[in-house]
Amino acid sequence: MTENSASVPDSPEHLLAAVRDLAREVRVAQRGTWFPLLVFAAITLLAIPVERYVPPSQCRAVDDGLICAGPNLGVLVYWPVALVVAYVAIAAFYIRQARRRGVGTRIGPYVVVGAIMAVVLACASVWRGLHPFMPPTGDGMPPHTVLFGLASPGVAMALALLVLAWVERYPALLAFGLGFLVIMLVQSNQVIRSSSPWHFLPQLLIPAVVLLLGSAAFYHVRPTIPQDA
């Protein structure tokens, strides 16, 4: 060691390591991952009675029953409204948590992206309501139907989780979000042919259960921080 370096209170390596550790500590304190997952699970479960009991529209009678040309208007209205309410609740949660923990939050970009996705979903819903399609007779789906699948509520929630993973710089949430996105994309390309009034149930129950399990897991590993700093 030279005399010059001895006058420096800490070595550059130690200072840089301390900077990294403190930055990580702040990021952990800012996380509240379990709550958005719980909210998304809740709005997915609430969609079940809407899907089941709001009467479908644009149906026509066929020999062995009824063919409906897409989701009913209640469902089309429900999802954009539910997503906006969810984002408001999530933003309020993060702001309240930031005040309680004494550390700011970066929730702004998340809310902006969420609002944009809710608007896109609403536009897709309106277009879908105005341009119904008949279920295809083969196994494949028309290209525009696949596009509507991408603009589904499940995909919107999965993308919201990926944005949240970026905001929180949380690799575990990134992995969860990608897995959830894959499930939603696979589900969105399924054609359901069933006469049961509950035919939609797997499409809502599977993501709801995945989200609930994720919420429980992230709640279990949440940071323990003094409540009043």
Partner: peptide, 9 residues
């Protein structure tokens, strides 16, 4: 990192 931080934190 926090944008805004409280004294106690």
């Amino acid at each position: 990192e926090a944008r805004r931080v409280e004294f106690g934190f």
